[in-house]
Simulated assay, not measured.
Amino acid sequence: MEFHNIARSGQVPEGVVRRVFVGEVEIALARRDGTVHATSNYCSHLDCLLSSGKVTEDGLLCSCHGSVFDFATGEPLSPPATRPITVFPVREDDGQIWVGVDEELAKSAMRRRAARSRRTPPATSAR
């Protein structure tokens, strides 16, 4: 697994959620109780941006419909979400935040509900 330097420690203060990228992988980066957490940035319910959410005592709150995800496991702690989000390993050294991303985690984080459910069927021509 390769770790990527994605932010300075000061860019992610306590209780704040930030949107960052590792290549094409979009990540929600948050700090709770002094620890930095990294998850996929899309809610597993309806693909709302988790970086628009809030840090709570329980985890990461999606601002759209109120699902909360556990920072350690990605499991939904409250509905309407029923599927987990991707969690990335994080290291914080010398004032820098590093997130571990491998091919499997990247694929998992980029898998989005909207991409699958909002596809429209090909147009048919009326003759």
Rank of each mutant, 00 (worst) to 15 (best):
56 T>Q: 14
78 S>G: 07
95 G>K: 10
96 Q>M: 11
56 T>F: 14
69 F>W: 06
59 G>P: 02
9 S>Q: 03
44 S>C: 08
20 V>Q: 01
14 E>S: 07
41 N>E: 09
30 A>Y: 02
17 V>F: 15
95 G>T: 12
67 S>D: 05
98 W>K: 06
91 R>T: 03
39 T>S: 14
22 V>Y: 14
20 V>P: 00
114 A>F: 09
84 P>L: 03
90 V>E: 09
65 H>V: 12
55 V>T: 07
94 D>S: 04
72 A>L: 07
61 L>E: 15
48 C>W: 09
53 G>K: 03
85 I>R: 01
116 R>M: 14
49 L>G: 00
54 K>C: 11
22 V>L: 12
81 A>I: 15
121 P>H: 04
37 H>A: 12
28 A>K: 11
100 G>K: 07
107 K>S: 08
96 Q>H: 10
113 R>V: 10
69 F>P: 05
35 T>W: 01
98 W>N: 08
82 T>W: 04
33 D>K: 10
85 I>C: 03
110 M>Y: 00
5 N>V: 15
52 S>H: 03
123 A>S: 05
93 D>E: 15
93 D>A: 07
44 S>K: 01
106 A>P: 01
3 F>Q: 09
59 G>E: 03
38 A>I: 01
37 H>I: 02
80 P>Q: 06
63 S>M: 05
43 C>G: 12
121 P>M: 06
121 P>C: 11
14 E>P: 10
107 K>Q: 12
82 T>S: 15
123 A>N: 11
107 K>M: 05
124 T>D: 09
51 S>Q: 05
4 H>F: 08
81 A>M: 12
65 H>K: 06
22 V>G: 08
10 G>Y: 08
58 D>Q: 15
99 V>G: 07
9 S>G: 08
87 V>P: 04
74 G>Q: 00
62 C>Y: 05
97 I>P: 00
92 E>N: 10
32 R>T: 13
30 A>I: 11
109 A>E: 06
92 E>L: 13
86 T>W: 13
58 D>T: 12
98 W>S: 06
45 H>W: 11
71 F>M: 01
56 T>P: 04
32 R>Q: 09
65 H>E: 04
10 G>F: 07
54 K>N: 14
53 G>C: 09
100 G>S: 05
49 L>A: 09
26 E>K: 03
11 Q>Y: 07
123 A>K: 11
51 S>L: 13
93 D>Q: 13
99 V>K: 03
75 E>H: 09
77 L>D: 14
85 I>P: 00
126 A>Y: 01
7 A>T: 12
110 M>G: 00
32 R>A: 09
118 R>K: 13
118 R>H: 09
121 P>L: 06
86 T>K: 05
82 T>Y: 13
84 P>S: 05
44 S>H: 02
110 M>K: 14
56 T>R: 10
68 V>A: 08
102 D>R: 03
69 F>K: 06
79 P>K: 01
33 D>I: 15
14 E>V: 02
79 P>H: 06
94 D>W: 00
5 N>Y: 10
107 K>R: 15
58 D>Y: 05
52 S>V: 14
114 A>G: 08
35 T>L: 07
74 G>H: 01
50 L>Y: 04
73 T>P: 12
118 R>I: 00
29 L>K: 02
57 E>V: 08
53 G>E: 12
69 F>Q: 04
48 C>P: 00
52 S>E: 15
42 Y>K: 10
86 T>N: 08
62 C>Q: 04
15 G>I: 08
102 D>Y: 04
111 R>H: 09
110 M>C: 01
17 V>H: 10
2 E>K: 13
70 D>W: 09
